[in-house]
Design a protein around this nucleic acid. Structure first.
Lengths: 323, 323
DNA sequence: TTGTAGGCGTTATCAA
DNA sequence: TTGATAACGCCTACAA
């Protein structure tokens, strides 16, 4: 059997209530140093850990933060986001549980858990958001302005814009965009592409030539051919993987970056430096974003001080040789 | 306020106990169809979800499965493992929570949670394992025979062996091994390398020339030079990323696979097909492994039928052009 | 077939 | 400064 507060109380010669006071540093409770010491020692001795279940029942809300993630194969970047978030929350005594946003009814997903907060990484309709709000569950949003005042926006547009800025700084005036086909990428794709489109328009450049690219050479080869036909001289890719595909397609056609076609990726995955030629890309610093989101959760759920607004400009251009 | 069983009971004109019977299909309880219907309708109507906290408190154990993962940057494969595991468990009504194996005291990590089971992906000393066993928490192990009878073994050795088998089938008799430097990879590296060594020995081949490789071109270039000097004609890499590094190093030296040096990776990440040349590798089918682990958890924690032993031979050689 | 009551471990209120 | 007690929501003997 597990060690309970009562066991500790008995060992320390106090009541269970006192144990609770000591363990939680109950504000406004005066505990003798001697008593405190006896309790802590007994707890240590017995390896006491308060039952999360009982705590949650009593407090009406658990210490679990629900991470609603999109229904896409998890890439390196998403993994890092979840990972960092999990670690930081863990350090604050919160435990993260991930669920696919798509799985089952939304209500089913959180209602039983009484989460301390929900971090929305994937899509979540306004009705779902309202449902959560009504239930008093803090919602922290990774995406989009649709989330309202407590939402935070990954400026996906900003990322697309940065890609175009770099390409034009290299003298390119007609660019193509390598977009993944799977509609489940739409979540981030829409923003990034809008940024690219906007940046082109502002500069008086023609619309970007958007071509779907799968992660195989044949598909990429075809895409490259289309871009060439359209007179494009540089490609912005949805992410580094798409950029790899473009490079592979070019390679197959006997072309090489940046002379035949310049390529810029997005994410700066570990392999980006190993591409041939090494891939110019953008590091969106998802680690910093994760820390910010965690701070936001702590603020909304635990009354921690509100973190300063996130500085999206941390995204960093990593210039290598493909542009 | 959250909807409780009592609310449902009131709405359906029955007692809370009856609600519990209906919700849980309590075995050996006869409930009138009319009553059952009324209860289910009321529950649906009110959006009732039983409190996990109260359930856990009552049953003495939560519905959470703890995933102890190694303290390494999460790669595509580890992400897929965690991801699949989370999904399958979720479908069975269990929720997965991940923790770095290294974070804090082990006891601290699980004791409060009263997990339904612990899946050990990372390292876990025998004392820790014993502690869990003493507490009656089922342990499911991804790695190594050290885990005892309930542990499952990823045959890391088998994977290394497969690499060598393929290379020898291509006529190579002297091979090199590309090993990541970070000691935190030791967990899997040791097994894979042992498999490579064993396979070489069995075939009367010289010991593999093990060279550390970081994910940058300079490091890889140096490694390739050392292999050439040692008279090696083929490289087995710890994983696909290391293989990419080797290819990049060769490229820089004006060499190309497989003529100058053959390269085989491990994992079959999405980018493997886009390497130049496309990377021969091994798909270890971590998705199937994850499903098996989940079945094992369900068996040990929920009394589900014991799954058949996992067939490690599902690992599949993916032959492309780098060998 | 359904209802009543007790207890799981914790914390908050109130009394000592 | 500390202790007794009730209540959080659920499940399950047992009683009706």
């Amino acid at each position: 059997m597990a060690v309970t507060a009562k066991d500790v109380a008995r060992a320390a010669g106090v009541s269970a209530a006192t144990v609770s006071y000591v363990i939680n540093d109950h504000p406004g409770q005066k505990i003798t140093d001697a008593t405190r010491k006896r309790v802590l020692e007994a707890a240590e001795q017995l390896g006491y850990q308060p039952s999360e279940a009982a705590r949650a029942l009593r407090r009406g809300t658990s210490q679990t933060v629900l991470l609603l993630i999109p229904d896409v194969t998890i890439g390196e970047v998403m993994a890092e986001l979840i990972d960092t978030l999990t670690d930081v929350l863990d350090a604050a005594g919160l435990s993260a549980a991930t669920r696919r946003a798509a799985a089952g009814t939304l209500r089913q997903t959180w209602a039983g858990l009484r989460p301390a907060a929900v971090v929305v990484v994937g899509p979540l309709g306004p009705s779902g958001r309202q449902e959560l709000r009504d239930a008093g569950v803090p919602v922290v949003d990774v995406l989009g302005p649709a989330s309202g005042d407590d939402g935070q926006e990954i400026p996906q547009q900003h990322l697309g814009r940065m890609q175009v800025e770099h390409l034009t700084s290299r003298g390119h005036t007609a660019i193509g965009y390598a977009a993944p086909e799977d509609p489940r990428f739409a979540l981030f794709l829409d923003g990034r592409l809008a940024g690219v489109r906007g940046a082109c328009r502002e500069r008086g450049m023609p619309e970007p030539v958007v071509v779907p690219v799968r992660l195989d050479v044949a598909s990429a080869e075809e895409a490259v051919a289309r871009w060439l036909y359209a007179g494009v001289t540089a490609i912005a890719a949805y992410n580094d993987e798409a950029a790899f595909a473009v490079l592979a397609g070019m390679h197959r056609l006997g072309m090489s970056a940046p002379d035949d076609l310049a390529v810029i990726g997005l994410d700066d995955i570990a392999l980006a430096a190993l591409a041939s030629p090494p891939l110019t890309t953008i590091d969106q610093r998802v680690d910093l974003l994760a820390e910010h989101l965690a701070a936001l959760v702590l603020h909304r759920a635990h009354g921690a001080p509100q973190p300063p607004a996130f500085d999206w400009d941390v995204a960093t251009l990593v210039v290598r040789e493909s542009t």
